[in-house]
Design a protein around this nucleic acid. Structure first.
Length: 773
DNA sequence: AAAGCGGTACTTTTT
DNA sequence: GTACCGCTTT
């Protein structure tokens, strides 16, 4: 038993075996932090601790999943699968569902993601007739979010003198009001946003001592990963749950704290010492991941920060190659250079695709890189970005699911009541909303029974409303009869969504239809996994959980899932990884390319204002550099397209800060075109120069330019000037062939078949086109 | 009610 | 460069 402990070094082993009492592990990058957590849990299990009484909180679902798998390989699947392991949000969402009635919710409450929250805030701002510029929905939501993360309720917010003063001075005195209305609306819709999951967990543990007691007794061992990224709300949950026996182990690295923008508080690490005077500290400073050059460079970077717990990582690995710094003229050349370096390394060193990662500061940077990789036929996977679950068509189908499960979900209802179009337009919907507000009823109640509220509606509208509500009700009745796949498929079909996309034959619609189908496939997979697990073993029953493979079960976590978590085909993993540095936290790759090291991009222009923010960017740089095991290439460009405009860029200050012994500057130039920028010309020109020198982007096809020159601008044509079989160009649809001209006077229209967009009828009175021949 | 057009604002990072 | 919004028209 526990002979697996021999795979650890001394300090790791100590940290693992110190199972009782408060333990803090300060773990440098690459020092085997995850390993300590994994082995600690495996060790507890091997000592006979029940998996049901271990709570392990991670930062991403993916981290939890991987850790579970590693524990399973040490002590067996049966023990590992019953651990309480996941993100704060997913673990406490589960507990909140079980205890929902105590805090005035149904256990089928909906979880709103950031997009949903923003939509709602925006709606409220409009209803209040506030200036949308002063009250930017995103900013308002941020303000509410940070209040919640500090456990300031809407009521407290409005009572707090300092907060009110702050908002008044910022010329946004109504934020408190918006916060109150927002919370009311969420409650009315039986919904919680991300921050509510933590906020209400605090409420639950604060106001219900018996519940607190129950979970204190239940979770006899608590472990928290990435502790430096917890916020106050999370800190307090952990503190309360652990206060009974104090078997709490936290693992973190202040140098890798990169989520302050989201309320994370490094002080939580410092507080640990005060809260638990009996604590033991273990420092892990030996790095097993990276070469000496990389470790040395990383130490040099973090030294520039003033606020930190002193710690220096070291390694016994080889010196390794130097960090390469590349300077390219444009983002396209940067991308092409990276692609060609990857391709060379694959040929020369027999490296695999999955050995490479390309990291960047913002998601938007992936586009140019993707293009270059495609050109070189290098398979890749983009992590994060617009998640699958955020796409419009997927959100629409999910809105049906949400409404079926929770008919109070007004946001879902308004989203789909007329999608696909079923003749219930804005005028009607507004009447319904007014009636709902006047009678203090939910919108669904009004839709279900408009007669009761005496709304002046035409009989055909009444019919359409009743068709819609009976459809939703009939789906609802099948929630516990059909599994998620069967019901989901039915909804996609009978709602008309599949048909809606099927009837159009443009590439966009086809893509959207495929995404809906992929969602249905996901449902089928979900059912399979649940059923195979249930046949092997029984899971612990939590009060209030229903049929295991129901649509409701699927929907419980869907808002908390990200693309990072949906590890598809295991056969299909040999790909180059593209992701933001934030997403790369906790991961490692043999070869890392870090692109876009330019002022105002990295560090971000949003963060150069204060030293706190700048230090966070520097920690982010530290995280990026320490992802690399063997080789690291950093690149920056002289120019880049931003907001569709051409911009000159200066190298990031972080490059200057790098230890000169660890780097080599390379002066190779990768030329994708004959145009290269004369460097001398760029000096002295402001980097934010927005003078629209229309340097045509490289990818614009020459064909288009030629047409523009030959045929002038897009304009309106008369019937007389057009004939069947003519080839024309439309600004949006591109080239197409006229197959029919019909109609009289104002109604004269040409039917045109466009490449890729199918058949369209253009009204000649309005459609601006261009003749091709 | 639906489609097309033109204007505007947006991009930091994520559970 | 694009996603979204609102206006206009049939």
């Amino acid at each position: 038993m526990a002979d697996f402990l021999n795979q650890l070094n001394d300090s790791q082993k100590q940290a693992v075996k110190e199972t009782e009492g408060p333990v803090m592990v300060i773990a440098g990058a690459g020092s085997g932090k995850t390993r300590v957590l994994t082995y600690r849990i495996a060790y507890l299990l091997s000592k006979g601790v029940s998996p049901f009484s271990i709570l392990a909180l991670t930062f991403t679902n993916k981290a939890a999943k991987e850790m579970k798998e590693r524990i399973a390989s040490l002590v067996g699947h049966n023990l590992a699968r019953n651990l309480w392991m996941g993100t704060f949000h997913s673990v406490f969402a589960r507990i909140l569902r079980a205890e929902a009635d105590k805090i005035g919710f149904n256990n089928n409450f909906t979880i709103y993601d950031t997009t949903d929250s923003k939509r709602l805030i925006k709606k409220i701002i409009k209803e209040q007739n506030l200036d949308e510029k002063a009250y930017n929905p995103g900013l308002v939501l941020n303000r509410i979010s940070s209040a919640k993360n500090n456990l300031i309720s809407a009521h407290d917010y409005n009572e707090d003198f300092e907060i009110q003063l702050h908002d008044k001075q910022a010329n946004k005195p109504k934020i408190g009001l918006l916060y109150s209305i927002y919370q009311n609306r969420l409650a009315k819709a039986s919904a919680m946003d991300f921050d509510d999951l933590l906020f209400f967990t605090n409420v639950l543990l604060r106001d219900f001592p018996d519940v607190l007691y129950k979970y204190q007794k239940k979770f006899r061992y608590i472990l928290v990963d990435e502790y430096q990224d917890t916020n106050y709300s999370q800190y307090l949950i952990v503190k309360k749950l652990a206060s009974d026996n104090e078997n709490l182990c936290i693992v973190g690295d202040d140098a890798q704290s990169i989520y302050a923008f989201r309320g994370a508080n490094i002080a939580n690490i410092l507080n640990f010492k005060k809260d638990y005077p009996e604590h033991k500290i273990f420092k892990l400073e030996q790095n097993y991941r990276s070469t000496q050059n990389i470790v040395k460079a990383a130490n040099g970077i973090i030294k520039n920060n003033k606020e930190q717990i002193f710690k220096e990582i070291w390694t016994s690995n080889d010196t390794g190659e130097k960090i390469r710094i590349l300077n390219l003229s444009s983002e396209a050349e940067e991308a092409a250079m990276v692609a060609s370096k990857i391709s060379d390394k694959k040929d020369n060193d027999k490296a695999k695709n999955k050995d490479f990662a390309i990291l960047y500061r913002t998601n938007a940077q992936s586009r140019a890189i993707e293009e270059a990789l495609r050109k070189k036929q290098i398979p890749y996977k983009v992590f994060g970005g617009l998640s699958f679950y955020q796409r419009k068509e997927v959100k629409d189908v999910l809105a049906y699911f949400r409404l079926i499960i929770n008919n109070k979900d007004e946001d879902a209802l308004t989203r789909i009541i007329n999608f696909p179009a079923r003749g219930i337009g804005n005028t009607t919907i507004n009447k319904l909303i007014v009636a709902a507000n006047e009678n203090n009823a939910s919108l669904w109640d009004v839709v279900e029974n408009p007669a009761k509220f005496k709304i002046p509606l035409g009989s055909n509208i009444i019919g359409r409303l009743s068709d819609f509500s009976s459809m939703i009700k009939s789906f609802n009745l099948q929630l516990n009869k059909l599994n998620a796949y069967e019901l989901g498929k039915k909804v996609a079909k009978e709602s008309g969504i599949l048909k809606f996309y099927f009837d159009q034959d443009n590439p966009e619609a086809i893509n959207r239809k495929e995404n809906v189908e992929e969602l249905i496939n996901g449902l089928s997979e979900f059912c399979e996994i649940i059923n195979s697990e249930n046949n092997i073993n029984q899971t612990e029953d939590v009060e209030g959980e229903e049929k295991a493979d129901s649509l409701e079960a699927f929907m419980q976590d869907v808002a908390l899932m990200t693309d990072l978590d949906t590890e598809n085909d295991p056969k299909d993993t040999n790909k180059v990884s593209l992701m933001t540095i934030h997403s790369a936290k906790g991961l490692e790759f043999p070869n890392v390319f870090l692109v876009g090291l330019e002022e105002n991009l990295f560090p971000s222009f949003m963060s150069t204002g204060s030293s706190t923010e700048l230090e966070e960017e520097r920690r982010l740089f530290y995280v990026a550099v320490t992802r690399a095991m063997n080789s690291l290439t950093i690149s920056h460009c002289d120019s880049r397209f931003k907001y569709g405009n051409f911009n000159f860029c200066e190298p990031s200050r972080f490059i200057e800060e790098l230890n000169k012994d660890c780097i080599e500057e390379c002066f190779e130039h990768y030329q994708t075109s004959k145009k290269t920028f004369d460097k001398n010309k760029t000096t002295g020109v402001s980097k934010s120069d927005s003078s629209k020198k229309s340097l045509t982007p490289l990818k614009k096809s020459s064909k288009k330019t030629v047409n523009q020159e030959n045929n002038g601008e897009f304009r309106i044509f008369d019937k007389e000037n057009l004939s069947v079989n003519m080839i024309i160009e439309h600004q949006k649809f591109g080239e197409g062939k006229i197959i029919e001209i019909g109609g009289e006077n104002d109604n004269t229209q040409a039917t045109v078949v466009f490449n890729g967009f199918g058949k369209k009828k253009l009204l000649l009175k309005y459609a601006k086109i261009k003749l091709i021949n």
